[in-house]
Amino acid sequence: MKLRGVTLVYGPPGAGKTTFAAHYVYHNYDKVFWVSAFEDEATFRGNMSALGYNFGERLVYWEAPLADPEPFFDTLVNSVIKERPGVLVIDSITEFLGSGNIDIIHNVVYRVIKQSGIDVFLTAEKGVTEKVAYVADNVIELVYDVRPYGTYREMVVRKIRGGLGTPCRI
């Protein structure tokens, strides 16, 4: 599965959004720019290393302050363009979708894509996907449910531009 352009990975907490994004970008890009609203860099690197993803110098990591979004995203775009990674990951976009921030986020995504050709991965909680799904070229839903007999996990490919015409369950 080739995921180029903007990819949205969404689902409930614990579904594996961060792990899915890390797995994909680790195996498909030489340089990754990762923005996290949840983890500090040491925790992220430790968690990923436990899964066998040792990014080393291939990773530029930002801990995202949840402050005034406009200056933050302007600085982010400039840094991404300067660093020239193959992919920008924003984990999780949910944290940035406060009042009116959707326009800023769309602007950032399009500026990064159009100005530099860098792919973008966005992770999000299920409840905010309708705000960002239409801007995405690829949409992946991760389902996670605890049942009496164990844990149920499913990946549903909702959209791949130029790809499958109907949802595909894996």
Results as ranks from 00 to 15, higher is better:
residue 63 E to G: 13
residue 63 E to Q: 14
residue 64 A to T: 10
residue 64 A to W: 12
residue 65 P to I: 01
residue 66 L to F: 08
residue 66 L to N: 06
residue 68 D to W: 04
residue 69 P to G: 01
residue 70 E to P: 01
residue 71 P to N: 07
residue 71 P to M: 05
residue 72 F to T: 05
residue 72 F to S: 02
residue 72 F to G: 01
residue 72 F to I: 06
residue 72 F to R: 04
residue 73 F to C: 08
residue 75 T to V: 06
residue 75 T to H: 14
residue 75 T to M: 12
residue 75 T to K: 15
residue 75 T to A: 15
residue 75 T to Q: 15
residue 76 L to W: 05
residue 77 V to F: 01
residue 78 N to C: 07
residue 79 S to W: 04
residue 79 S to N: 14
residue 80 V to Q: 02
residue 82 K to E: 14
residue 83 E to W: 08
residue 83 E to L: 10
residue 84 R to K: 15
residue 86 G to I: 10
residue 86 G to S: 09
residue 91 D to R: 03
residue 93 I to P: 00
residue 93 I to T: 09
residue 96 F to W: 14
residue 97 L to W: 02
residue 100 G to M: 02
residue 103 D to Q: 06
residue 104 I to Y: 00
residue 106 H to D: 12
residue 110 Y to V: 01
residue 110 Y to F: 11
residue 114 K to A: 14
residue 115 Q to G: 12
residue 118 I to H: 02
residue 119 D to G: 03
residue 124 A to S: 15
residue 125 E to C: 01
residue 126 K to A: 13
residue 128 V to N: 04
residue 132 V to T: 12
residue 132 V to M: 12
residue 133 A to M: 14
residue 138 N to H: 08
residue 141 E to S: 11
residue 142 L to C: 07
residue 144 Y to S: 10
residue 145 D to V: 04
residue 146 V to N: 06
residue 147 R to N: 06
residue 147 R to F: 07
residue 148 P to Y: 00
residue 150 G to A: 02
residue 153 R to F: 06
residue 154 E to Y: 04
residue 155 M to S: 08
residue 156 V to M: 06
residue 157 V to Q: 02
residue 160 I to Q: 03
